Amino acid sequence: MTGAAARQLADLERAIELDPSSAGALEQLAIYRLDHGQKDAALAMVEERIQAGGKEASGYMITKAELLGRSGAKDAALATSDAAITADPANAALLNMRCWLKGTLEVQIDSALADCTRSIELNGDRAAALDSRAMVYFRQGRLNEAMADLNSVLANSPDLAASLYLRGVILGQQGKTAEARDALASARLISPLIDQDYGRWGIKPTVR
């Protein structure tokens, strides 16, 4: 999170050495490789886990979709999430990922709302789904509705950097400069590279 790439890689490799089955470590290593110009290697390590099947296969499908979206392969990312949801239509995490992809990549926005709302109804990770739905509302210019979802998230998870950041962006657009700066500062304290992350999707605050 601080951008210490060499130390990050060393820790991830050590984590997988200690527990080769760790889905979290593999996901983070795949994202690391993608962000450092090794897209094919990143996708290959995830695809291997998907092909192995088992109860964690859907989780790796989420990771694959995230990697494809992060690389800008919009159609492939959505196709992967579509295939995963077809196989497991009541999976709240999969529905949330598809909503998030549509929101961040700014595609199929109208259907994104249905994905997020269904994920919330299934009682998955409500904070993640509400944050994703706020992103979709933001893309639609429905700032009050986006803010309502973000406030719901932050009422229970006040340290969620993503929600703090988007809240700061919206407050800035609404002319609430002081509140915007406070929210953005909190988000950056928790996640120092968050401007870079959201800049990838063309989302930049109007205040610093």
Rank of each mutant, 00 (worst) to 15 (best):
S71H: 11
S191W: 09
E106D: 14
W201V: 10
R14N: 13
E179Y: 05
N144F: 12
I203D: 08
L68V: 08
N96E: 07
V207G: 07
L43G: 03
G168S: 09
A5E: 15
Y165P: 00
G59D: 10
Y32T: 02
A155C: 08
A4I: 03
A129C: 07
S22V: 04
D40W: 10
Y60V: 12
A23T: 02
K55I: 05
D35T: 03
A146G: 10
I190D: 06
A127M: 11
D82H: 02
G199E: 04
R142A: 15
Q196M: 12
P89H: 08
H36C: 10
C99F: 07
G24E: 13
A10H: 11
G54R: 07
Q8L: 12
G199L: 02
A25E: 03
L193D: 13
R208H: 13
G202P: 06
A185F: 02
H36P: 03
I62P: 01
L122A: 07
A161F: 04
D82A: 04
A183F: 01
L166G: 01
A128I: 02
D197W: 15
D110K: 12
A83L: 07
S132F: 06
R49P: 07
A134K: 04
S132H: 07
A155E: 14
Q140F: 04
G24F: 12
L164T: 01
L164E: 06
R7P: 00
A5D: 14
D115M: 06
L94Q: 09
S152H: 09
A87I: 10
P89A: 11
T177I: 15
G24W: 13
L150Q: 07
E106S: 11
D40A: 15
E13H: 04
S119V: 00
E145Y: 00
A87D: 10
R188M: 01
M45L: 15
R133I: 10
W201L: 12
E66R: 15
R70L: 14
Y137E: 04
A65W: 05
R14G: 08
N96T: 10
D131N: 14
